[in-house]
């Protein structure tokens, strides 16, 4: 009989700075061709106006979020609940807060 050893893999930290760093990395990959600088991305940065992301870019970002956080963060549901105007005005900080809240909710459960 073998003893199962389960490795303790630390989940992505539910802290805003770590999440912001994660998101910045994803956006740099997504916008690689534009030669964006990490310093240009902060909480107030808007996806649409500042980064000029199109909705199809948000689909790609959604895939990256799923890869990083699994089912605990549902970006499509988050976007689905917003009005078009709110999506256009969406900031990195709002998404960071949503991710942090989602991760904390699953930590508690």
């Amino acid at each position: 009989m073998t003893t199962e050893i389960t490795a303790e893999i630390s989940p992505p930290a539910a802290d805003a700075d770590a999440v912001l760093a994660d998101l910045t990395g994803m956006l740099l990959t997504l916008l690689e061709e534009y030669g964006l600088d990490a310093a240009e991305i902060g909480r107030e940065t808007t996806f649409h106006g500042d980064l000029e992301l199109e909705s199809i870019d948000l689909v790609t970002l959604s895939g990256a979020l799923r890869e990083r956080y699994g089912d605990r963060v549902n970006f499509a549901d988050f976007i689905a609940d917003l009005e078009l105007d709110e999506i256009i005005e969406l900031t990195i900080g709002q998404l960071v807060d949503h991710v942090v809240a989602s991760l904390r909710a699953t930590e508690r459960s």
């Binding site: 199809i56 499509a76 976007i79």
Partner: peptide, 13 residues
């Protein structure tokens, strides 16, 4: 248009 029109609206439902 693109698939994003469904991805964030009808798809998940």
């Amino acid at each position: 248009d693109s698939l994003a029109s469904y991805y964030f609206t009808l798809g998940p439902a």
